[in-house]
Simulated scan of single mutants.
Amino acid sequence: MSTDVVLVCLLVGVVNYLFRYLPLRIGARRTSGGLKSGPLSRVLDSIGIASICALLVVSGAPDVMRDPQRLLPSLAGFVLLTLIFWRTKSIIIATLTGAVAYGLVFKVMLMAV
């Protein structure tokens, strides 16, 4: 293995670690109640929903392009994911609810055909 590959791997690993560690260590302040506050905290909180939505689009786009009938289940999952996250602020509950909605809509569409 060449030294260039090892150096690139080390650099990527260090930058990845710092990207995850530094914002949490430097920018997230805690209030007296123990909750995070500040603009960086709001950005970090929104990364979860943004990454889930991006994964939904990236993984669903090829399926929808091949089979347009998968558009409705994907939209149902995305809309429910967004609404549940907006109401609960819990990425876990929102993701699970969106996945269940996708599965149910897809199953109902298969049974209707």
Rank of each mutant, 00 (worst) to 15 (best):
L11P: 08
A94F: 01
L96K: 01
M111E: 12
R25H: 07
R20L: 08
I93Q: 11
S37N: 15
I84Q: 04
F106N: 11
S37R: 14
Q69A: 15
G27H: 05
V15Y: 06
P23S: 03
M1C: 06
C53S: 14
I92A: 01
F78M: 05
P68K: 07
A76N: 06
R20D: 09
D4N: 15
L96D: 07
A61D: 08
C9Y: 06
S37M: 14
S59C: 13
L24G: 14
S41I: 01
L22H: 02
A61E: 11
V5A: 11
L56V: 09
L35A: 15
F78R: 08
R70C: 13
I26K: 10
D67Q: 09
L24P: 13
S2I: 01
V57F: 08
L11R: 12
G98H: 01
V100K: 07
T97D: 01
T95V: 05
A112C: 14
G77W: 03
S51A: 12
G13W: 00
I49N: 02
L44Y: 01
L44W: 00
L81G: 03
I92S: 05
N16S: 14
Y21F: 14
A61W: 03
A94G: 03
S90N: 04
G33P: 08
I93D: 00
L104R: 02
V57L: 12
G77V: 02
L81M: 02
Y17M: 05
K36G: 13
A76C: 11
R20V: 09
M109V: 10
V108F: 12
V12R: 09
A61K: 06
G77Y: 00
F78P: 01
A101M: 02
R29V: 03
I52M: 05
L35N: 15
L56D: 07
I47E: 12
R66Q: 09
T3M: 12
G77N: 02
T95R: 03
F106D: 05
V57A: 07
W86V: 14
G34H: 02
S51I: 08
V64A: 01
C53M: 11
L110I: 10
M1G: 09
G60K: 02
A54H: 12
A99H: 07
L80M: 08
A28H: 11
P62S: 03
L7Q: 14
G38N: 04
I52S: 00
L24K: 15
Y17C: 04
G48V: 00
L83A: 10
L11G: 11
G98V: 00
A54C: 15
A94I: 00
G34M: 02
I92R: 04
I47F: 05
G33H: 07
V79N: 08
M1V: 06
W86R: 14
P39L: 12
R42K: 11
